[in-house]
């Protein structure tokens, strides 16, 4: 079984298993869309994949290495995450926040180029000097994603990135994800409730329902909720 990320008999959950043991393999260049009702374990699965919370059982391999054996720094070279926590500090600008994404590479010269590229990709050039308390939720989301892009990892994991965006921004966001995953050969994993939009751009779909995960290639069949 080849794949950049491999899941071997993965049991999802904090204390109690909530999804049947999962086997899967995902390559770079994919846009993986994770769907399912609230509370089925999407966020927990994402926290396992990012290495923040260890799974109950089973193995996650990334680039043929056991994720749980990686150091925090090494993990940060592979995986960046975006969650929904908003911060509104009045002394941090959009640009400052994107620069924080380079934390793991402090003091290296190529830092500027990754920061600029991330700002350009997310289209936040016009607001780069604004402070975080002066931007909208949608702008915050873009800034936060740019911060993860600046980390320059192979994998980006996003928990409901489209939640606070208006309709055109949602379309633009998933189109962006598709382009980034294709052009920069990254694996992007995003959970979402905006399936109608996401299915136009995703390349791989995992739907969580009744404690198991169905895996599809696009286009998507009728889903059971």
């Amino acid at each position: 079984m080849s794949g950049f990320i491999k899941l071997i008999d993965l049991v999802v959950g904090y204390k109690e298993p909530i999804i049947a043991p999962l086997n899967a393999s995902v390559n770079l260049g994919e846009l993986l869309i994770l769907s399912g009702r609230n509370g089925v374990g999407k966020s927990t699965l994402l926290k396992h994949l990012s290495g923040f919370i260890p799974p109950i059982d089973g193995i996650i391999e990334i680039n043929n290495t056991n994720l749980s054996k990686l150091s925090i720094q090494k993990r940060a070279d592979y995986i960046a995450i975006v969650n929904n926590k908003r911060i509104e500090e009045s002394y941090i600008t959009v640009e400052d926040l994107v620069k924080m994404g380079r934390y793991n590479h402090n003091g290296k010269i190529e830092n500027d180029h990754f920061v600029e590229e991330a700002i350009f990709t997310m289209g936040i050039e016009p607001i780069r000097k604004k402070t975080l308390n002066k931007i909208s939720d949608g702008e915050w989301q873009k800034t936060n994603i740019a911060r993860a892009l600046a980390q320059n990892t192979s994998v980006i994991i996003l928990d409901e990135p489209s939640a606070f965006l208006d309709y055109p921004s949602k379309i633009q966001l998933f189109e962006n994800f598709k382009n980034i995953s294709k052009n920069q050969n990254k694996l992007i994993i995003a959970s979402t409730h905006d399936l109608e939009i996401a299915q136009q751009f995703g390349s791989l779909f995992w739907h969580v329902n009744e404690g198991k995960i169905d895996q599809f290639r696009s286009p998507m069949p009728e889903l059971k909720w």
């Binding site: 926290k47 990012s50 290495g51 923040f52 925090i72 720094q73 993990r75 940060a76 070279d77 995986i79 960046a80 995450i81 975006v82 969650n83 926590k85 911060i87 500090e89 941090i92 924080m100 994404g101 934390y103 793991n104 980390q151």
Partner: peptide
């Protein structure tokens, strides 16, 4: 300074 983003994100950025 990175930990203002919350433990989960800071952790993913390489902060123990």
């Amino acid at each position: 300074s990175v930990m203002i983003l919350g433990d989960e994100v800071a952790n993913s950025m390489g902060v123990n």
